[in-house]
Amino acid sequence: MDTLSVSKASRLFWLGRYYERVATTLAYLWNWYDRMIDGAPIDYAGFCSALDIDCSYADAEAFMHGYVFDGDNPVSLRAAADAMLGNGMMLRETIGSRTLAYLELAVSAFESGKDSVTPTLPLQRVIDCIMAFRGSYDDCINDENVRNIIKCGAGVERLSLYLRLGWRMDLVQPEVGKLMKRMNRTRLVPSPDALRLLLAVKASIPPEEKASVLAAVENLFKL
């Protein structure tokens, strides 16, 4: 059937946002694990501030454990992975059991890393599973609208993280272009104001304008 319920469209979008949140943030934190081996400082307070999340961690180690692995912490990556799987589970007949299995495997890998002395190895499996999920849904889902709603969610999340974590605008701008192309292959209806602002994004903008670009990204779709 080439129609989707509104609730399914929302779940597809958020599935995309959550998997991208896990994958991009883990990639970002990857070198922090390496730096911690040598005792180098990591700016976890700045990271929390950039993401607008609470920062009540005792030290860097507590942050890395609590932010990455603590499923009871609603802003943790583990909680994002659970939300990714939760959305996926509600879309089984849309994305297929074979594709959904990669999300199950990603969450299992998270669980196995919780008490590991080498957390980067299971976390690498998390990223591997998410990459496999991306390939699987792109290959197995025939409905272009469905595929691209997931990609729109991922695109929005990636832009949000890039902007919050201070990526250079020449790296951000191509992502805006990708998001626009994906959006045009869906039946999602964007907010006209947000769309206008994003279409005008340049490779170089003053820092004070980043906040309005971020707001446009976050408000592009009401899902």
Partner: peptide
């Protein structure tokens, strides 16, 4: 969810 997939039916909740 599995039976919806296997039978080719749409899975829906009350709001749908």
């Amino acid at each position: 969810s599995y039976l919806a997939e296997q039978s080719g039916a749409v899975l829906a909740e009350s709001g749908d």
